[in-house]
Design a protein around this nucleic acid. Structure first.
Lengths: 159, 159
DNA sequence: CTAATTTGTTTGACGCGTCTAACAATTTAC
DNA sequence: GTAAATTGTTAGACGCGTCAAACAAATTAG
């Protein structure tokens, strides 16, 4: 199985895959900027990931993923995207928040739950004819606190 | 506003409110067991929370929440419950996993998103006549990978 | 009431991830 | 091709949350 990696280490792997954009090798400064940490943090993360055989990196060089690192990074990214889209497209969370939350959840939420969320997204997207019905109702419910067409089974106005 | 507290500290507060059950004061050993940490960790957490005025605790005594601590603990618990129920009742995640994930999410996911998830749950529960329709469809979709009554707009069978 | 057991605390350590400051290599500009 | 600017590393520190070991108080049993 996939040995456990810390949230931070997964973030570093994910950053490499996201930043490389064709170039397939990434500078420390890029990662530093993208992750909002200082360069020494990147350096030490790369050293650790190197020792685990997940990235290739030598002094003053660029970082690239090994095949193992690539697999893990892709997996993190896949989960990240599913979560982000669920938050943005189903819950209509604003893009920035959806991005940030996906980033947290991808590390802490169980695979089981992540899978369910992904399925939910798939389910909704796969049925464009049904989606508008209740999803729009939900949006109004979320905005105004009640269902549009009447049927006020429950009327909540806390906070 | 509510000053930020670490995930750990929120967990300790939450543990007090959950464990007291009428007794309204909690032993270190109880918390230790409930949180899966050793007693010294509890002691040092209580000291810190004491200094912040969130719990009342003196050497060899039981721990109780101050009014401030109570407010925060209640809030954490409220969010926890909303998340847990969303996972269990909407996504049909198994109870143990739902509990564990709620515990992670309550600390890391933004209030915005937590609010949306809670609204979603409310929305579904408030409309018992509509719920069965698409929610059952989702359950089948999640289990078998496709919609029961045909309409195979998209058929996904990855992993 | 004393002895045994349970409960709780202190101390000092560790791992993780981060940072700053000082230094070193690389790249860029002239 | 040398000087300046940029990029990267090392060393050492810190905060957080945890732990084990040693000790101290409180509780229970006799």
């Amino acid at each position: 199985m996939e040995k456990e990696h810390s949230a931070s280490m997964e973030d570093y792997l994910e950053a490499i895959i996201m930043l490389r954009e064709g170039k397939e090798a990434v500078r420390v400064s890029q990662m530093s900027k993208a992750l909002g940490v200082k360069m020494p943090s990147v350096t030490s993360a790369l050293r650790k990931l190197s020792e685990e055989g997940l990235v290739e990196h030598q002094r003053y060089g660029r970082a690239r993923l090994t095949p193992d690192g690539e697999r893990i990074a892709r997996d993190v990214l896949r989960r990240h995207e599913a979560l982000r889209r669920f938050l943005a497209e189903i819950l209509s969370v604003d893009p920035e928040t959806a991005e940030a939350d996906a980033c947290k959840m991808e590390h802490s939420v169980s695979p089981v739950t992540q899978e369910k969320l992904a399925k939910f997204l798939e389910f909704v997207l796969s049925r464009p004819n049904v989606q508008p019905e209740w999803l729009k109702m939900f949006y109004r419910y979320a905005s105004y606190g009640e269902v549009p067409g009447g049927c006020p089974t429950k009327c909540l106005g806390e906070e």
